[in-house]
């Protein structure tokens, strides 16, 4: 089970309503909500380091870490087991980018022989970071299927090959799982660049 650390509740985007317990407040502002449109909400979402996408130089911390988050080292990622869910950490501010679940990644160790040429540059110390959000309907890619060495989403059984740049090998997902390039600094995993494509669901039209 993935445990997301405290979510700093910076913004109330238009499509992110209050809980039922807070519905009175909502009722009061509902007229405003109706008029506001979607643009403002999206802008609000993008504010602050906790919501913004991972950047080169970020470190990674366990998504269930509590208290002072400790940057993950490549040796902590073990072979042939469930991927480890993590969030990027901005070292300068110490802020964990857990404000958006689209920032969540899963870390997986892939044997050198199972890595395609295309995939190798994204790995550091044998570890790859993929978006944790399935490109089908946005559920979490959390499962490791040992027999075909794939990452699987439990919602609708999409399977992705970590050694083959997140290629879809089964299920309804329409596109590859985005990669977050990694490098290593004294054994600590560091983000080397932005996601290879937008994490999350490709909107159907």
């Amino acid at each position: 089970m993935n445990k997301t650390p405290h979510h700093p509740d910076h913004s109330h985007p238009v499509e992110s309503p209050s809980s039922p317990e807070r519905r009175d407040a909502l009722r009061a502002s509902s007229a405003l909500l109706l008029c506001a449109g979607l643009g403002i909400g999206k802008a609000a979402l993008a504010e602050g380091p906790s919501n913004s996408r991972p950047k080169a130089g970020d470190q990674l911390v366990r998504s269930d870490s509590e208290g002072n988050p400790v940057p993950l080292r490549s040796t902590e990622i073990l072979p042939d087991t469930k991927p480890l869910p993590a969030f990027p950490l901005e070292p300068a501010s110490g802020e964990v980018r857990s404000g958006s679940r689209l920032n969540k990644v899963i870390l997986i160790r892939v044997a050198p022989g199972d890595l395609t040429e295309e995939t190798r540059p994204y790995a550091a110390g044998g570890v790859l970071a993929y978006s944790a959000v399935c490109t089908h309907q946005g559920c979490e890619v959390s499962e490791w299927v040992a027999k075909d060495k794939t990452l699987m989403c439990y919602c609708h059984f999409s399977k992705f090959s970590p050694g083959r740049a997140g290629e879809v090998v089964a299920g309804p997902a329409p596109r590859t799982l985005p990669l977050l390039p990694l490098r290593e600094e004294n054994g600590v995993l560091v983000v080397a660049g932005p996601f290879t494509s937008n994490p999350g669901v490709a909107k159907s039209t």
């Binding site: 985007p13 499509e15 992110s16 958006s100 679940r101 689209l102 959000v133 309907q137 946005g138 559920c139 979490e140 919602c155 999350g200 669901v201 909107k203």
Partner: peptide, 8 residues
């Protein structure tokens, strides 16, 4: 639909 929505 919000970008971050998980549709179980």
């Amino acid at each position: 639909i919000p970008d971050e929505l998980m549709q179980l």
